[in-house]
């Protein structure tokens, strides 16, 4: 049933399905908006509980062999076939929220432009960039000729991705200023941090490893080679604490998930 529901449509049926979806979504939103506040919370809790229950039962229910095309060893249970339609539904909801985000951006920048507030030029750039990118993306799909493709590539790869990489590159410069502050020897902890960082950094580079290369390849003194000390710090001292943190985080995630799923959360989000 679900595989037929999500079967790709073509031609006029595709347009009818899209319009039908919009109409259905509009009706649903209107119904939800008209609900009294007192009813909204139980509704959210019921939907959250049912959604969580489905994923929990699917995860814990015993599995058996359930071969699918491309994966003959696939395991699953009676709920597994519904995972993909459920994921599609989540993608659709996520798609709708992109629209919400865009409306929010247009509201903020539109008001700033209309009232000629500070930063109006930035808002103007936002609208120009958004309209240009949107128009060219649609044109590239609708009329994929060389001009449209090149214009799109110019904006996407030539500008957007270049700016993205520039921001990433900034991390290197920020690292230097942050490291300088962190490694200033002010307290005992800062000194310890600096010494350990120095050992790890020396162990990572060939020049650092050259410092202790004269130490033997085996035996007691081998342990004092800078790369061995580095490995010990990274795989023993550091990973032990990281794993301890990971245990705590895992259980913390479980606790928050349980509180949200079972509607036990109090004093946060929308619950007074």
């Amino acid at each position: 049933m679900f595989s037929n529901l999500f079967h790709p449509l073509h031609g006029s049926s595709w347009y009818i399905a899209i319009l039908g979806c919009f109409a259905l979504a509009g009706i649903l939103i209107a119904i939800l908006q008209s609900l009294p506040h007192a009813l909204r919370r139980p509704l959210i809790r019921i939907v959250t509980f049912l959604g969580g229950l489905y994923y929990a039962v699917e995860y814990f229910w015993p599995t058996h062999s359930m071969p699918i095309p491309g994966s003959p060893k696939h395991m699953g249970n009676f709920l597994t076939p519904f995972i993909s339609p459920a994921a599609n539904m989540l993608s659709v909801i996520a798609g709708w929220t992109i629209g919400l985000g865009t409306i929010n951006l247009c509201q903020i920048h539109g008001k700033r432009l209309l009232h000629a507030k500070e930063g109006k030029l930035n808002s103007l750039v936002f609208f120009i960039a958004m309209i240009a990118m949107f128009t060219l993306a649609v044109l590239k799909q609708a009329h994929p000729n060389l001009i449209n493709k090149n214009l799109y590539m110019l904006l996407f790869e030539g500008l957007y991705q270049a700016l993205d990489s520039t921001m990433f590159a900034l991390v290197a410069f920020f690292l230097v200023s942050a490291s300088y502050r962190a490694f200033r020897v002010r307290t005992g902890e800062a000194t310890l941090l600096m010494v350990i960082a120095m050992v790890v950094m020396l162990g990572q580079i060939a020049l650092g490893q050259q410092l202790t290369i004269h130490l033997p390849d085996h035996g007691f003194w081998h342990n004092f080679r800078v790369e061995i000390i580095r490995d010990w710090i990274l795989t023993k001292a550091s990973s032990a604490s990281v794993r301890a943190i990971a245990f705590g985080i895992g259980i913390g995630n479980l606790a928050v998930a349980l509180r949200v799923w079972l509607g036990l959360e109090r004093g946060a989000f929308f619950d007074s």
Binding site: I249, I251, N253, A255, L264, A268
Partner: peptide, 24 residues
């Protein structure tokens, strides 16, 4: 680490969050 999950209990002193923290 998991102090992150203790934060809401610490800030709100809400019994649910405090109980959850002890359970954790």
């Amino acid at each position: 680490g998991d102090e992150f999950y203790a934060a809401s209990a610490y800030l709100s002193k809400e019994p649910t969050a405090l109980g959850s923290l002890v359970g954790q």
